[in-house]
Design a protein around this nucleic acid. Structure first.
Lengths: 206, 206
DNA sequence: TGAAGATTCGGGTTGTGTTCGGTAGAACGG
DNA sequence: CCGTTCTACCGAACACAACCCGAATCTTCA
């Protein structure tokens, strides 16, 4: 792993590592502050940033609890590679899935998000699909195709005008485009051109 | 892959590569400017062009964040972009975004879904976060960390028992875990251990 | 309960990246 | 020969991340 740490962050990290090496326990923030010539608040912030970057782990409100997860001077500095994978750690809501570190499966990202030449991504604006839990700002992964099955969510050009994301139904020889928002009415377009169907949703936080 | 770079661009690229090799971190634009005998604005533009050509990658507005993707002096150019990419075709709901095939941006999948050693994925079971549009069966991308800011969605072990996904609030010295489902009540756990915070959601269709 | 230590609040300063609005020369086609 | 397009160049100002701190809480634990 290669972490983008700043000069100062590396120095703080080194100090915590070395102190831990020498004393078997983390230094206090004040000790670190004195050694590095700044205030403990500053150290606190460095440590917080280091934690956010995944270089250390702490127990909040616990003294001397900084654990080093990343050695800034270790060799394996080569930026990693190829198809990114994510460990899939189980199911959440009951049980303690994260404990079971044993059989963590690593799934390539491409198994979670469909990719390929006939896929593309659109950013959603508006809340017309909100009841299908597709929110303003989400990214939708679309498979390029010109037909759809009933009930699928499609990207369609309606009446040569507008591109929209709606549920598609073919009923009694006419097409109904159904938004997933009870304040919006379905439309029954004369001319409709399907550009693709929804295969995935991606949302980012923060 | 073979990139058409200009003489100057190659020199800039070499400098960034060598400095990174030597210092483990990117130089600042000013350092590069001095070394190459021109102003930092000039360097900035070179780097921008290098980024457009795919030779480097940056975090905008972040110091010393130039990562080299392409070595001008290495022979066998295995395209380092085994990173799957998706074309991002614009915004949907109005206009005709898909027509504008001109400036389709290709974004690496890793820009849409955060990845790295400190990320993992959980499958959501249940509807307790449904009003945040996280549905049963969705995958959530979690960043491993033991603290959270107010309002963030966290994975937490509550009272040494249960792992849940909830919104986190620290109020008056106690923690409130707020489900996003009006039929569920918030909980005020005595002991809580944060395992990570929500950074992304992925949903698959079909 | 008191002391040690961690954390928050609400500021401040500095280092870098970025934008704005230009100049100059080289290459090219009409 | 002129206009256009390209690369390379720059100073000044701005924007924002990183870094910094004192004082006042808050938490833990002996």
């Amino acid at each position: 792993m290669f972490l983008m740490l700043t000069e100062k962050q590396i120095r703080v990290l080194r100090f915590f590592r070395d102190y831990r090496q020498a004393h078997g326990i983390s230094p206090t923030l004040e000790e670190a502050a004195e050694a590095l010539g700044c205030s403990k608040i500053t150290i606190f912030e460095h440590v917080k940033n280091l934690e956010e970057k995944g270089a250390v782990r702490r127990d909040p409100m616990k003294a001397r609890s900084v654990a080093i997860l990343y050695d800034p001077d270790s060799e394996s500095h080569e930026p990693p590679d190829m198809i990114p994978e994510l460990p899939i750690a189980g199911t959440i809501a009951a049980g303690r899935p994260i404990e079971a570190v044993e059989h963590i499966e690593r799934v390539p990202l491409t198994d979670l998000v469909p990719t390929g030449d006939d896929f593309y991504v659109l950013r959603v604006s508006g809340k017309s699909m909100i009841e299908d839990h597709i929110d303003d700002g989400d990214f939708v992964v679309i498979k390029r195709q010109s037909t759809a099955r009933n009930g699928e969510v499609v990207v369609a050009i309606v009446d040569d005008e507008e591109a929209t994301l709606k549920r598609y139904y073919l009923e009694n020889g006419r097409v109904r485009l159904q938004p997933a928002n009870s304040s919006l009415e379905p439309t029954f377009p004369d001319r409709i051109e399907i550009r693709g169907v929804l295969k995935g949703v991606i949302r980012q936080f923060r």
